[in-house]
Write a protein that binds this DNA or RNA. Structure first.
Lengths: 395, 395
DNA sequence: AGGCTTTTGTCAAGCGTGCAGCATTATTCG
DNA sequence: CGAATAATGCTGCACGCTTGACAAAAGCCT
């Protein structure tokens, strides 16, 4: 406490107590077990660099707290005494990821290992007002809880994916295609029922996370994800971390008029050979199919679309110099028609051409990314502040 | 050691020994002292959260190792026994930052606090071959050493700033305006004389670092730095860290033809009212002066230049959504003529308009940034792996 | 079947570290 | 010169990790 003298940088609080050291060691053991098959104490000891007896003590404590579960030795034919194996108790907590779209709400439940244990998809009227849409979100989330017999307090994190840039408060005030949604604060809404942290994030950004987690860019740390569909958007991962920008509007290069992302899909909708009966939602799919079959006008439409898509992508690539560009979104099903030309255009305009890959995740990528973001938050809380609390750490 | 079985993620090595804990505490005390005025043990104890006796023991050790120096109490009029103060011994090590330009080599020497203790500026013939240029670099560095009577081993880090994207090996193979420089590896050259780490980095990126360190963007974590001069370039700081991109080519948006950064300065050179006698190097300065005096043609030239500058800046801003855009480079001396229009253009094209500020650093910004990068590297080595080695930690 | 090898599980002793508390010292104020 | 004040220095205590040793549980060999 500075009395009245020049108070400098008070309260750095990095001093490590000997009891804090034990927490850190416990965490490093948990970390050494996450995502790995069940391991023996000896393995954990070598992995963490701790001694075997020391590791054993900590492991016992973690088992008592419910973080680890014991796997009794099965008849594996090794020479010495068969070792007990310990497994991270992924069921100690769960996270929920929600994708709020115009036509549907998709909710997923996963355990702490990220294993998806339930998926709910409910339809929504595109014109539904915010209250109605939130009711559907609630219903989807509720179904996730019911599927595993969980109570709200068993959920450690929730992430909601929406379209449009998300500001710090979790709202999409700058722009949203959902009617009336600009005034909605989904985090606040869910906080009434859940005590865990609720994050709201842009759908492109979440899809980018998903591609790095389980999709086409698992090996990369610098990723530009381009969502190609009836809307065009981007999500950026730099140095392995999702980047939001200072106001949450990173990746919105499509707002630049010279980048014709807003009008790019119209090339497909206005294709000359498009029959009259095709619905506007199915137009793109029809054009891609026709182009694949050799239809001249359709091929031209796809070429024009890709050219426009490439301009914005080039701007992103030149700005960030990523390792990988991932093409996602609805049109990525037709990546075979797009990727070649996209690569050529980038090769023409960019200094260093990154790898270009098609998304390997389907329509669930946004919800998956939402799960990943929620898990990231849980990890940060666990490993950052470090609270190996007994059994069930709440918010 | 995995024998032949499924070797998973070996060697995580995060286990904290009790002796390692002491290292960490020593480091946190050093950190609590860096950049602060000399402090008493009691102050350090409260700042780090450690106990006073414990702090005292560590401080004694740090003094013995040469990291801290004692400041005997002067006659400050407080009640009670006057406290010894301890100061971080910034002179324990030094770093060197070099700015290799077309016309000059600028080298700076700084201590561990970043206080610049010597600056050398040597002229170079723009057409000099790589060997000649490297000789000048050596001379400049040598002068830094001589100024403080230092030996090469007293230097803990060196950073060299060059124009053009720098790859992982430290070379500028993609592009460089210096004749023959593409084949040069400055890091390797300096490694012959210095055992410390030598980094090579792009000049725009270093200038960006400098602006965040001591310049116009000290408070920001997300910065787009635009170097405006006869060459146009950019440096990006995201979440407080300089971003290089996967191949070191981040920020090279100027390579996009639609972004007219390459030709933007020609608007100034081709100004109609420019007298015949003015040298090409001084043309821009003349035009800015004329514009400020009210010359119609000059004002038009500046307006056209700024319009072109704004296109690329808008692409960077929309991609990254930074908090601040810093206008640097030689033309930032005329920021009064540029900033207003630049802000208007960004306001027209961008979703969320960042603050726009003029650089407060002069021609030394690149060398300053080089110092900062070298200091960052030293810090990372110290605080990361943690080696409070005795007196003088070498590479 | 019995001994040998190998690896695990467990215990005891030792050590380094940080913390709390008390005595000591140096300085100002009355 | 004595009282008050605050920093310094010292001792005992608690905690957790490590080393080393030994018993237990399996497979392999004779």
């Amino acid at each position: 406490m500075g009395t009245e003298g020049a108070t400098v940088t008070d309260q750095v609080t990095t001093g490590t107590d000997v009891t804090r050291m034990r927490e850190l060691n416990a965490l490093s053991i948990v970390r050494a077990l996450r995502g790995n098959p069940p391991s023996t104490v000896t393995e954990l000891a070598t992995r963490t660099g701790l001694s075997r007896p020391g590791t054993d003590v900590i492991v016992q404590g973690l088992v008592a707290d419910g973080w680890l579960t014991v796997v009794e030795p099965d008849g594996s034919s090794v020479v010495g005494r068969p070792a007990r194996r310990y497994r991270f108790n992924a069921g100690a907590g769960h996270v929920i990821g929600v994708d709020v779209g115009a036509h549907k709400v998709l909710a997923m439940l996963a355990d702490l290992d990220g294993t998806v244990t339930w998926t709910t998809r409910l339809p929504v009227d595109p014109g539904a007002d915010p209250a109605a849409r939130l009711t559907v979100v609630d219903a989807a989330v509720e179904e996730c809880l019911a599927s595993a017999g969980l109570r709200p307090d068993d959920i450690w994190g929730i992430t909601v994916g929406v379209t449009g840039p998300v500001d710090a408060s979790g709202r999409t005030t700058l722009f949203t295609p959902l009617p009336g949604w600009a005034s909605v604060n989904p985090a606040e809404h869910l906080a009434a029922r859940f005590s865990c942290p609720v994050q709201v994030e842009n759908d492109c950004k979440l899809a980018a996370l998903a591609e790095r987690w389980q999709g086409a860019a698992r090996d990369a740390d610098d990723i530009v994800y381009v969502l190609a569909g009836m809307r065009t958007g981007a999500g950026l991962i730099i140095d392995g971390t999702l980047r939001r920008g200072h106001g949450g509007a990173a990746g919105e290069i499509g707002a630049l008029r010279a980048v014709r992302w807003l009008t790019a899909p119209s090339h497909l909708e206005k294709c000359a050979s498009l029959p009259a009966g095709v619905d506007t939602d199915d137009a793109a799919a029809w054009v891609f199919a026709a182009a694949r079959a050799g239809d001249k006008a359709a091929r031209t439409a796809v070429r024009r679309y890709t050219r426009d898509l490439a301009v914005g992508t080039a701007a992103l690539v030149l700005t960030l110099d990523p390792q990988v560009v991932v093409l996602g979104g609805g049109f990525s099903r037709s990546a075979d028609l797009i990727l070649g030309q996209l690569a050529r255009e980038l090769g023409r305009t960019c200094l260093r051409v990154p790898e270009i890959r098609a998304s390997t995740l389907g329509a669930e990528s946004v919800a998956l990314g939402a799960l990943r973001l929620a898990l990231n938050e849980v990890d940060a809380r666990l490993f950052g502040t470090g609270l190996p609390a007994p059994v069930a750490p709440r918010a």
